[in-house]
């Protein structure tokens, strides 16, 4: 239980992952499913970024003079997640384009109604 206070970033990101997963499972609306997908990705990004934080240090940007290794947080997770965010945006764009096309072809974006329309 004391984990809730010492590792609040990690616990929060896991709960956020659960929220996204539940949104993905429960909703029939495709736009809501895509929103759930994005919440899930964001949770993973938050978890990864939290790995880089160190108490009392500042962002890894050198201003004026270099303050030494002990003054800055770990820059690697931030660099990786920049790439990850661009990938998530690309996948979201493609999924939204598919949703537009599905609305054109089927006339609805409710998944259970689409699944009923077999054949044709």
């Amino acid at each position: 239980m004391e984990m809730l206070f010492t590792k609040y970033f990690e616990v929060g990101s896991m709960v956020l992952f659960g929220v996204g997963f539940m949104t993905l499972l429960l909703h029939n609306n495709l736009i809501k499913k895509i929103i759930g997908m994005n919440i899930m990705d964001t949770a993973v990004f938050l978890f990864f970024i939290a790995k880089g934080y160190i108490d009392g240090r500042e962002a890894p940007i050198v201003r004026g003079f270099h303050k030494g290794v002990e003054a800055y947080v770990n820059p690697v997770p931030a660099a990786l997640m920049l790439t990850g965010i661009v990938i998530a945006v690309s996948v979201t764009a493609f999924a939204l384009a598919l949703t537009v096309k599905i609305y054109e072809k089927y006339g609805t974006i409710e998944l259970d109604e689409i699944m009923k329309m077999r054949g044709d």
């Binding site: 659960g18 934080y53 160190i54 108490d55």
Partner: peptide, 21 residues
């Protein structure tokens, strides 16, 4: 979702402490 989140939380429990150098 409950099973998944609790498995992930067990994983988090073992991890090193947050924000240490």
């Amino acid at each position: 979702t409950g099973i998944l989140v609790s498995i992930l939380l067990v994983g988090v429990y073992d991890l090193p402490k947050f924000g240490r150098a």
